[in-house]
Design a protein around this nucleic acid. Structure first.
Lengths: 261, 261
DNA sequence: AAGTGGTCTAGACCACTTT
DNA sequence: AAGTGGTCTAGACCACTTG
C-alpha cells in the first residue's frame, strides 16, 4: 500500500508500509506492548533491516489509529532494548545489527534458570542448616538462622563445568530436589511470588585446589572462574547468595551491555 | 536508625511534603529531568529513606504544578535506575537501600575512563599498524587496514594490575599519548563525537605464561582474569576492540545488574 | 524551510491492592 | 469502596537536523 511520496531519502525505503500490524483493542495486552512486540518481530525477521528508517511518529500513529504518545511508548521500549536509535531531526532507525538478541543479562539467568536442554544440573546437596557468619552477613539475617543450602553440579556433554553453591533463607520457599532439576531455581522463586529486582556480582579467578580439581576433572592449579552473587527482591531484601566456580577451560561469561546516556 | 511505627506497613509519613523542589521553566533542562535529579538527590541525601512512600502521582503533580505524565516520566526514569519501585494499588517507594550507587555498568567505564586518581595508566605502545586477521574481523574492516594499537599497563599502589590492549580503526581519531594518560580513552572518543552504544564482552580465566607473569609481577601459572570486548557506536559500527588481562590476585569484576520484567 | 523527535498538558478510563 | 499506578487520547510548542 505504498502511499509513495516522491523522493526517497538516504536510507529510507521503509518496508514498514507493507507491514500490517494487528492491534487488538479487546486484548488485555497494552496497545504499546502489542506494537512493540510486532516491531521487534519485524526486526528479528528481517522485514525491518538494520539502518531502515521507521517513518515519523505522527504518520505512524495516524496509520495505526493510535495516539502519538502510545506509539512513542512502543518505540521507546525498543530503544531501551537497544534495537532502535532515535536522532532528533533525523528519524528512528533500526540499529545496525550486532545487538539484537542476547541482551538478557547473562550469568544470572544462566545460573538460576537452568531450564536448558543440553546442560544438566545435578543437585548434590539440598538441606537446611544454620547460617554461618559469612552467609548470614550476605543474606542480612542472624547468624545461626536457618538457611537452605544448595549445591549443584552443572555438566555439558557429560563433562562437569561448574559447581554452584547457593544459600537462601529457609523461610522463603520449599525446594523440592526433583522439581529443582527440571524447573530451575529462578523459576521456582518466581512461582513462589519472589520477584528478583537486582543483584550484586563479583567475578574473579584463582587456581584449583586438589579437591576442586578432582570434582571438576581438571588438574590441580588449573584456572577457575569464580563468581559470587547476592540477589535482592523488589523490597531490597536479600533472597539468594551464591558462590560459583567454573572451569575456565570450558566456560566464560559472555554478555552485552548497553551504554546509557 | 529510623523510628519505625508499630505496625510498620510501609513507612508512610513522607518527608516529601517538606521538600521543596525548585523547578525552573526557563531552563533548557527538561522539567521531568529536573524533578528526577532532585528526587535522586533527596534519596541520595537520605531525605527520602528506603521504604518511604512517595505519595500518589496525582497529588504530586498538582503540588508541583506539573501534569501527571511529566511527573510519571521523572519517576519512571528513577525506576529504570533501580532507585524506586512501583506497585499498582500500593504506591511508589524508595527501594530498600543496597542498590543506590554503582549502577553504572563497570568494567567498560572502568577500563576506558581511567580518569581516576589512585590508579595510573602507562601507555607502553601507541602506533598505527595494519590490522591482523582477528582484529580486522572484530572491527569489521578489511585485513591490513590501518588500525591504532594501544597497549597500556595499569597500576595501583605502584603494583601492576592489568595489561590492556586495544585496537581502533585509525581513521576514527587521533590518540595523543599524553592526553590519553590524563584523560582516558572513553572521554577522548566521546570528545571526538563517537557515542558508544553497546558492547559485547567475554570474561574468562587462564594461567599466566612466563612472560605475562614477569610483566605483572606474578609467578608463572598464576590465575589471570581475561576480558575481550568489542564496542559499537550508535550506528552499530565497531569502534573498539580490546583484550585485557588482570591479575586475579588483585582484581575482580564487581557490578550490579537490574532484573528487567 | 521543512521534517523530525523531545517535551508538555489536561483530561479519561481501567486494573489492581488494600481496607 | 477507596486509593493507587497503568494505559490512552488529542492536541500543542520547541529544538534539532537537513536540504
Amino acid at each position: 500500500m505504498a502511499k509513495a511520496r516522491g523522493s526517497a531519502r538516504a536510507v529510507s525505503a521503509p518496508a514498514l508500509d507493507s507491514l500490517d500490524f494487528a492491534l487488538d483493542r479487546g486484548s488485555p495486552v497494552p496497545l504499546y506492548y502489542q506494537l512493540a512486540q510486532q516491531l521487534e518481530a519485524a526486526i528479528e525477521h528481517g522485514s525491518l533491516a538494520p539502518g531502515n528508517l521507521l517513518g515519523n511518529e505522527v504518520d505512524l500513529s495516524v496509520r495505526l489509529g493510535l495516539s502519538r504518545p502510545t506509539v512513542r511508548q512502543a518505540i521507546q521500549s525498543l530503544v531501551d532494548k537497544g534495537l532502535l536509535v532515535r536522532r532528533r531531526g533525523v528519524g528512528t532507525q533500526v540499529v545496525h545489527s550486532q545487538v539484537k538478541r542476547g541482551l538478557e543479562l547473562s550469568s544470572l539467568y544462566d545460573d538460576l534458570e537452568a531450564a536448558g536442554q543440553g546442560p544438566t544440573t545435578e543437585v548434590v546437596r539440598n538441606e537446611r542448616v544454620p547460617a554461618t557468619a559469612d552467609v548470614a552477613a550476605a543474606l542480612g539475617i542472624g547468624e545461626g538462622a536457618e538457611v537452605t543450602v544448595l549445591e549443584r553440579l552443572r555438566c555439558t556433554h557429560g563433562q562437569p563445568v561448574a559447581i554452584l553453591c547457593n544459600y537462601l533463607p529457609a523461610s522463603l520457599l520449599e525446594l523440592d530436589t526433583a522439581r529443582l532439576e527440571s524447573t530451575g531455581l529462578y523459576r521456582m522463586m518466581r512461582t513462589a511470588g519472589i520477584t528478583l529486582h537486582s543483584a550484586r556480582q563479583s567475578i574473579g579467578a584463582r587456581c584449583a585446589t586438589a579437591e576442586e580439581a578432582e570434582r571438576l576433572d581438571e588438574k590441580e592449579g588449573a584456572a577457575l572462574l569464580t563468581m559470587q552473587r547476592t540477589a535482592y527482591d523488589d523490597t531490597g531484601r536479600p533472597v539468594e547468595y551464591g558462590t560459583h566456580i567454573y572451569r575456565a577451560s570450558r566456560y566464560a561469561f559472555d554478555f552485552q551491555l548497553l551504554v546509557r546516556p
